[in-house]
Design a protein around this nucleic acid. Structure first.
Length: 963
DNA sequence: TGAGGCGCACTTTTT
DNA sequence: GTGCGCCTCA
């Protein structure tokens, strides 16, 4: 069909561009007004097509660039589109409206803040939404379903976040969702999954018959629903929290924009007039909210100029709400829509396409078969690659290590053999962590590569060093927390960046210990660490007897470092926060990190990200100081993402390592798909979020999961241009058999032959050696004279013994050297409970020999725990101050029934170990039996509030013969 | 068939 | 901390 001949006269430049398109592409580009669905398989030139379509529209009379709206899913795609368009139409491209769905929503909201009653609305950062959620959780009343007094108080934070985003995305009002949950709950008893088919004998004995409800199963699901109901109930509080900060989140960007347009006809008309032509990229990735916004704008016309491009076979973001159903919905909504299928592939060889094709035809959920007359078979059209006869390879390795070692060796050979870059190479895995081994081996072999992965900057060494500095600075600015300052200083002095010889730090610690002992003996106040260090380093004045024998370099280093640290503390009080951070990072921490970094570029990027974050925080909160930053740090660290930074690598590397999801849209001459085991590609992850009614949840079930995974595998395969290698391991490192994923089996069914790859011992050996971490530096040992003196009157208590068994080095520092340690919440909470119980029993042994009322016990706890008020963050203190009394009241109720008030409290024991040290210790409580000869020995074990409840409820009873 | 115990993981990504 | 798969037992 000679389409171009029928067209109005087109500019010569565009004509030549159109001539480069194939017949189907031209058909789409020159389609007259009206909806058009372009089904664009991999490598069929869809971005090119979109750009050409815009160029074509611009040649039409009465079409102005600003009336054309291009919608993409990601920022990167939007940039890419603008770039392409510049090539096609020149500077006019800047006037075309190119948006992501979210930026369009944001535009509509910000242009119409007045309608929403606010002019100053800003998008919320991830951090801000997390803070709002934390406030919501903090504000829960006692006894609320989602309140956690013990354990992680913010456990449900990310589940809430996910729930609220889903609600906004799907347009569920809280009331609607509650109704759906209630309906679901009412229907449970008639759901076959909750009925006995054949009750077990024990249940039969209780009169259960087939068809009766399984009580515990029903109750369990109802409890889940209850939690969901409670969570939905927090939606309004979350929205109110955002509003109080004048913020809207990602979900609101779409939901509010849609709502504005729906409710306000005048507004809708103005946008409908503004945009007259619509083009949507990656249509299979759009979700419900995005489609609604699009249709609201396009529905002004009965026959809108609306072009959507997508590929049902590459829909891989179902977990974000994307659905192939959106593509079906398009054809239902516009029955008159034309459909163009792009089949000519300009990327891959015929064998690669045939392999991918044979795999994907197994999917049922495809447009093929649903749209009449639709045919979709990829045809190899690449000038050079199409005719390549090379078949994809299937490689079976013994273990993942064999696989990584062999691939790394092959890549290294290519690189070092000067065949690099012979063409770009991509290595694809399902999950990030499957790539770790290979990345490590490549780094060791000196092969440059790029890896796309976001890492948490806050968990990297540069940030942890900064964190230590800030903790000390913060603590030393708060005079009520000397212990925390001491502990932070001791840790800080060990930073490699400060280069203090470790042996001298030990000598300093020993010196402080002997100072403490002498001052105790003399009944005089003990110097804190910073003051002590000052005395110890003082060259002038009389040398105190406890002054440690520091090395000359050590003394010099310590003097410099303390001056530096003091300088930071002073600067914190005077300089703005971003400047302080720059001082600390740029002058001290960064140079030290750079000197030993394997990837200096990465460390620089981390430094940039950290400083940028500091500036952003200072802007967000005008008076923000170090302690505010540390608080934010804590919030960020508690969320899964932390402070994300794209981990790059060498920018120009010809080798890229990525996950199948992030490989979408990219291509390489040679592609390796690694780790094709069933466990990686078809794992069923535990759903830990809130239960949704099944009618609202996206289609699940094994068939749908399988097809989603097959589409992802299809995406991975179709990245390859010439060489495609699919690998898996037969066993894991422990020797357990691994099942290759079903798609591998399908490829074998379709005629590919798997080969067992034997990796040479030397290659394996190198890989194993690379894997071993470098040995830790030897721990410094103080001179034996000092050590002997230290251990002169050493007694082995149960605490010390436990500590030693857990970690000898930690025991040496904490128990022998007694370096300062800050009190953590477990310790403070545990000892308050412990002391309260101890005193309570002592009081019970007064002549009356009876327990006091529960409130007496609670009062004891309150008195002891109040010491912790200044040592814990306010919220943690509040939470534990509430949890303690609850715990003790519970215990008291039980103890009334089964415990005697006559117990022996704090029983001291000693044991002489033959030839060894004396073991001393204290038994918390002995409950004497009636026979007067035996008793129960109790140890409270109150350390962690999470487990204290259980341990108090069920003490382990050990009968003991008293002598 | 189902109850109960135990071991074992704990994606993918964008705005 | 939580839920799933797998096992055994009745």
């Amino acid at each position: 069909m000679p389409i171009i001949a029928e067209l109005p006269v087109l500019p010569a430049a565009l004509l030549s561009k159109l001539a480069g398109l194939n017949q189907r592409q031209r058909q789409a580009v020159t389609h007259p007004d009206g909806p058009l669905l372009v089904v664009a398989g991999p490598g069929t030139g869809k971005t090119q097509l979109l750009a050409a379509r815009v160029a074509f529209l611009l040649t039409q009379p009465d079409v102005r660039p600003q009336e054309i709206l291009c919608l993409t899913y990601t920022d990167a795609a939007a940039r890419n589109m603008r770039h392409r368009l510049l090539g096609f139409v020149g500077p006019e491209a800047h006037r075309v409206a190119i948006h992501t769905f979210h930026s369009l929503g944001q535009l509509i909201i910000q242009e119409n803040g007045g309608v929403l009653g606010r002019h100053d609305l800003e998008p919320a950062t991830d951090l801000e939404t997390d803070e709002v959620l934390r406030e919501v959780l903090d504000g829960l009343p006692a006894g609320h379903q989602l309140r956690r007094d013990v354990g992680d108080a913010y456990y449900d934070l990310r589940h809430l976040k996910q729930l609220f985003q889903t609600m906004k995305r799907e347009g569920w009002a809280p009331a609607e969702l509650l109704l759906a949950l209630e309906e679901y709950r009412l229907e449970l008893p008639s759901d076959a999954a909750y009925l006995y088919k054949n009750p077990p004998p024990a249940m039969r004995a209780q009169g259960m018959r087939p068809g009766d409800v399984i009580p515990h199963k029903l109750a369990e699901e109802e409890a889940h629903i209850e939690r969901s109901v409670a969570a939905v109930g927090l939606f309004e509080a979350y929205q109110a929290g955002l509003a109080a900060r004048r913020r809207f989140d990602y979900g609101d960007m779409l939901a509010w924009a849609t709502h504005l347009l729906e409710e306000n006809q005048g507004l809708r008309l103005s946008y409908q007039e503004r945009f007259q032509h619509f083009l949507v990229d990656e249509y299979q990735d759009t979700n419900g909210a995005q489609s609604r916004l699009l249709y609201l704008l396009a529905d002004y016309w009965s026959n809108p100029s609306l072009l959507v491009v997508g590929d049902d076979d590459q829909s891989i973001f179902r977990f974000q709400g994307a659905s192939v159903a959106n593509v079906f919905e398009f054809t239902r909504r516009y029955p008159q829509a034309a459909t163009v299928v792009l089949e000519e592939n300009y990327r891959s060889s015929a064998p690669v396409l045939a392999t991918a094709e044979s795999l994907i035809v197994r999917n049922q959920e495809r447009l093929v078969g649903q749209l009449p007359g639709l045919n979709k078979q990829l045809l190899a059209r690449h000038a050079r690659f199409a005719a390549s006869p090379e078949l994809p390879r299937l490689c079976r390795y013994a273990t993942p290590l064999h696989e990584a070692a062999d691939v790394a060796a092959q890549l290294a050979a290519l690189h070092h053999g000067g065949q690099w870059p012979m063409g770009r190479v991509g290595v694809i895995t399902r999950n990030h962590d499957q790539m770790d081994q290979l990345a490590q081996l490549l780094r060791a072999a000196g092969v440059p590569f790029q890896r796309r992965r976001t890492v948490d900057v806050l968990a990297e060494p540069l940030a942890t060093a900064l964190h230590r500095v800030l903790r000390y600075v913060d603590a030393s600015l708060r005079p009520d927390d000397q212990l925390a300052a001491d502990a932070a200083l001791f840790e800080l002095l060990h930073l490699a960046a400060l280069a203090v010889p470790p042996a001298d730090l030990l000598r300093l610690a020993l010196g402080h210990q002997s100072h403490r002992r002498q001052m105790h003996a003399a009944g005089q106040p003990v110097l804190a660490w910073r003051a002590w260090a000052g005395v110890a380093l003082d060259d002038f004045g009389p040398t105190p007897p406890e002054q440690p024998a520091l090395s000359t370099e050590g003394r010099q280093a310590l003097i410099c470092v303390l001056a530096l640290v003091d300088g930071w503390v002073q600067a914190a009080a005077t300089l703005p926060l971003p400047t302080l951070l720059e001082h600390i990072v740029l002058e001290t921490l960064l140079p030290a990190q750079l000197a030993q970094a394997a990837q200096p570029g990465q460390v620089l990027a981390e430094a940039r990200a950290l400083l940028h974050w500091g500036r952003a925080e200072a802007r967000r909160q005008a008076e923000a100081g170090v302690s505010d930053l540390l608080h934010t740090w804590e919030v960020l660290a508690a969320t899964r993402e932390g402070l994300p930074l794209e981990q790059g690598g060498e920018v120009s590397a010809a080798l890229e390592l990525l996950t199948a999801h992030s490989a979408k849209g990219l291509e390489w001459e040679h592609v390796w798909v690694l780790g094709c085991q069933q466990t990686a590609w078809r794992r069923k992850a535990a759903d830990r979020g809130f239960r949704l009614p099944p009618v609202l949840a996206p289609a699940t079930g094994d068939a749908a999961d399988c097809e989603e995974a097959r589409r992802l595998f299809f995406v991975a395969l179709t990245r390859a241009q010439v060489q495609l290698t699919v690998c898996w391991a037969a066993h894991d490192e422990a020797g357990k058999e691994l099942v290759p994923c079903e798609f591998v089996a399908e490829l074998e069914q379709d005629g590919l032959v798997a080969a067992d790859v034997v990796v040479s011992p030397s290659v394996l050996d190198t890989a194993r050696r690379t894997q071993l971490a470098p040995p830790p530096p030897p721990a410094p040992v103080p001179d034996s004279v000092l050590l002997d003196e230290l251990l002169l009157d050493f007694r082995l208590s149960a605490t010390v013994l436990n500590s030693y068994l857990a970690c000898p080095l930690a025991c040496y520092y904490e128990q022998i050297l007694r370096v300062p340690t800050a009190h953590n919440e477990e310790l403070l909470f545990g000892s308050a409970i412990h002391l309260a119980l101890e005193e309570f029993f002592r009081q019970a042994q007064q002549p009356a020999a009876a327990f006091g009322p529960a409130e007496e016990l609670v009062e004891l706890f309150r008195r002891h725990f109040s010491r912790a008020r200044f040592e814990l963050p306010g919220r943690v203190y509040q939470r534990l101050a509430h949890a303690g009394p609850e715990l003790l009241r519970d215990w008291w109720a039980q103890a009334q029934a089964c415990t005697r008030p006559t117990a022996v409290v704090e029983y001291r024991v000693r044991a002489e170990l033959p030839g060894g040290p004396r073991l001393v210790g204290m038994l918390d409580r002995l409950d004497l039996h009636d026979d007067g000869r035996t008793c129960d020995v109790l140890d409270y074990k109150t350390g962690s509030p999470a487990t204290a409840s259980e341990k108090l409820a069920r003490p382990s009873l050990v009968p003991l013969q008293l002598p």
